[in-house]
Amino acid sequence: MAAALGRAAGRARPVPAGLPIPPGLPIAPCRGCGDGDAAGWARRERSYWRALRRQVLGPPVPPFAEPVQVGAPVLRGAAAAVAAEQLGGPELRRLAKALTAGLRARPCLGLSAPQLGVPLRVFAAELPPDRCAGYPPALRRAHRIEPFPLRLLVNPALRVLDTRLVTAPEGCASIHGFSAYVPRHWAVHVSGVDELGALVSWEATGWAARIIQHEMDHLDGILYIDRMDTRTFTNVAWMELMD
């Protein structure tokens, strides 16, 4: 069995369009196809050790340690409200812990439950002072980028306080390596409860308001690419990739 797994993992081959993909089959880009077709069929080859680990441990269980990437169905569905009896429970506390850890493990200012594979209306956001100081001073002034403490909101409701639209660059942990300019309202108010059921009320302006709107979109199955100026969509590492 181990030898068979090793041989399968080492032989990636293209699959003709229109045919079902057998479970566990390693897929390679189809060399004769156009870029669109090749991108559609390309899959990361699973090594022998990855295949063996999956066979022993089974698939990962939400909440995931890493954000799912665009293409995952959970990112495109409307998240469900958290039931009152779940407040303070172990599952919601575990989700809150995973969101907090996910925020602090990468350059990420907001993270929603759907991004960790959990289709519930929960998000967390935080902008520590040290991370805030990393923004250029001119950008901080123009977009009111100011630190704010960790906030976790369950079943959040959004109200727009200032309808002016301001355009600024955004990225997303679920669209790794890209960014684009996106218009957002300048000031909003969001309210809900935390994982224990305590009331949370947050009036935000500038960058914090942008983060809130980005995360609220996630709860409705909307990504920033749905709102972006398409001409500004950028691979943030394009210069490095040319080296």
Rank of each mutant, 00 (worst) to 15 (best):
A3Y: 11
L5K: 00
V15D: 07
P16L: 09
P16E: 14
A17D: 12
A17T: 08
A17G: 12
L19Q: 15
P20M: 07
P23M: 08
G24N: 09
L25I: 12
P29K: 00
G34V: 07
D35V: 13
G36A: 14
A38D: 11
G40M: 11
W41E: 13
R44D: 14
E45P: 04
E45M: 10
V56R: 13
L57F: 14
A65V: 11
A65F: 10
P67E: 07
V68T: 09
V70H: 05
G71K: 03
P73R: 11
V74K: 01
A79H: 03
A84R: 14
G88S: 10
G89N: 07
P90T: 05
P90Q: 09
R94M: 07
L99A: 04
L99M: 11
T100E: 15
A101I: 10
A101P: 00
A105S: 15
C108L: 14
P114K: 02
V122P: 00
F123S: 01
A124P: 00
L127H: 08
L127A: 15
P128F: 12
P137E: 12
A142N: 09
F148N: 01
N155R: 03
N155L: 06
P156R: 04
A157T: 15
R159A: 15
P169F: 06
G171Y: 04
I175T: 09
I175Y: 13
P183T: 05
H185I: 00
W186K: 03
H189N: 13
S191W: 03
G192M: 03
V193L: 10
G197N: 13
A198R: 10
L199E: 15
L199K: 12
W202N: 08
G206R: 06
G206I: 01
I211E: 03
I212E: 11
M216P: 00
H218C: 01
D220R: 12
I222S: 05
I222H: 10
L223F: 01
M228R: 01
M228W: 01
D229W: 08
D229T: 04
T234K: 04
W238I: 09
W238T: 05
E240D: 14
L241S: 08
